[in-house]
Design a protein around this nucleic acid. Sequence first.
DNA 1: GGGTGCATGTAATGGGTTACATGATTCT
DNA 2: AGAATCATGTAACCCATTACATGCACCC
Lengths: 199, 199
Amino acid sequence: MAKRTSSGPEVLLGLLTIESMSGYDLGQLIHDSIHHFWNESYGQIYPNLKQLAASGFITGKKEKQQGKPDRQIYSITAKGRERLAAWLQIEPQPEVPRNELLLKMFFGSKASPATIRGYVDQMVERESAALQIFSAIGKQIVSQPQYPDTPYWQMVLRFGQLEVESHLRWAQESLAALRKLEQKRPAPPFRKEKPHATK
Amino acid sequence: MAKRTSSGPEVLLGLLTIESMSGYDLGQLIHDSIHHFWNESYGQIYPNLKQLAASGFITGKKEKQQGKPDRQIYSITAKGRERLAAWLQIEPQPEVPRNELLLKMFFGSKASPATIRGYVDQMVERESAALQIFSAIGKQIVSQPQYPDTPYWQMVLRFGQLEVESHLRWAQESLAALRKLEQKRPAPPFRKEKPHATK
DNA sequence: GGGTGCATGTAATGGGTTACATGATTCT
DNA sequence: AGAATCATGTAACCCATTACATGCACCC
């Protein structure tokens, strides 16, 4: 009795309600706009599109271009909209968390505080960059005409902003704590330590 | 040239530095203690343990019990500690985000605000429950003797707390916004709407 | 008698990333 | 000259969840 959700095809359907697009465009759009909460690789997108077209959820038209390779432009059908609507009625399942940074930090006493600090530093960089992108997306949304989608897009964006802010606050706290740990046990001493202290 | 990290075996090694345990115990501990940032199913744990033992990273001893099935108690070896230490030196890769709730909310205009509100309500329940668990874990950590792990465990826990708090704040905001949307377009009217408004 | 917990494991199945393949154009 | 972008697709592989299998004991 599996709760197969998978959502892969439905993202594509959803994005095609905004505009008809090629697989390549969909990939770009996913990367540029919803990357902070969803991702699809081309290895998924192209086969999914093929299958969706074969089942009549979308239709494709070949578009010739000069200089560039041909594009397949897909449009959602009425049947596709039905499938999307049905999928929206299914309770979203919370994703299984897998945060490698936290995992390594959990075992941080087996490395040096400096190593872990380096990882937190990198996280700060990544998340700060994300904040920049968010504010750019935010400006784009408000400058656009008001679609019925607009309020939803704003909520989703706001999630990212609040979450990132909490991550950055945490990072500041943690960096301070790690610096304290470094002072206590100042950079690894010369003698080799046998690893049985924990037990 | 794949950046194979996978971390599956290393979690087990890490947890075995705390104490020697059976596969079943490891599963329990993962579920009870690090569930908010990592997860492993038994379908992964048992095969991984077998392989780790075959390669000499851990050793297993059979322990007979009365009434209950036999247990295989695994202990980490020096070689295992080396592998763990080496893994800790590898930069953690940020996980690929996949948040189904946000995805459905992004396409929220194709459902009703009430549907989406229901999903947010459920999220509030889940995350509030998580907060309770966190505070219980927090008390447990401070009441324990101070291992070298303690400060790291506290940082990791704090991450969860701050993140959940941000989620709950977001949920409150969003619920308010959704209620407003419901008033504007009060519960679906009787006439059927054709779905071309977006285009 | 039936469900739940302890305990270990395998097999089927399905997702998803990465690498590879192709080929023209444009930018550095 | 070589890298990057546009554009589509396939195949290999890996990772992970779920279901299934077994079997005893304890509780309701």
